[in-house]
Amino acid sequence: MQKISPKILASALHAATKGQTATESAQTVKSFVNILVKKRMIGKSEEVIEAYRKLTLDEKGIVEAEVTTSHPLANEAEENIKKFIKKEFGAKDVEIHHKLEESLLGGMKLKVGDTIVDGTLKGRLTQLQRELTK
């Protein structure tokens, strides 16, 4: 039997619970978990939950962004970043996860999905190094 990926499971669950009331969907989730146990895939539950979360975010047009900087972010900077992402990635709303990493020296790194925009001082220095040693 071919393995079913967590993504497929999550989208199945999503389709099944669509338009259901809270009690109904609780019942659906219960039987879904039963199926997972029966198919011996309950070990994958965390991945299914993660995939489900991504799915709901996608549906609402919310984009998750990982921002890494060397210094704490000012409030207005966060707003500007949100604006930038909304424009560049066509998102309705942005959920920002902020990370501090001193080794970046300055600037910031933005990661949305698979895409990275590197505007850090460290990144630029590496670019310069590559250019000079060419």
């Binding site: 990661k111 698979d114 895409t115 990275i116 925009v117 590197d118 505007g119 990144g123 630029r124 670019q127 310069l128 250019e131 000079l132």
Partner: peptide
């Protein structure tokens, strides 16, 4: 020469795909 090269260097904020 080094100064000139560094002066000419323009860093760009490229969009890159990562995994």
């Amino acid at each position: 020469q080094l100064k000139e090269e560094i002066g000419n260097f323009k860093a760009e904020n490229k969009r890159e795909k990562v995994g």
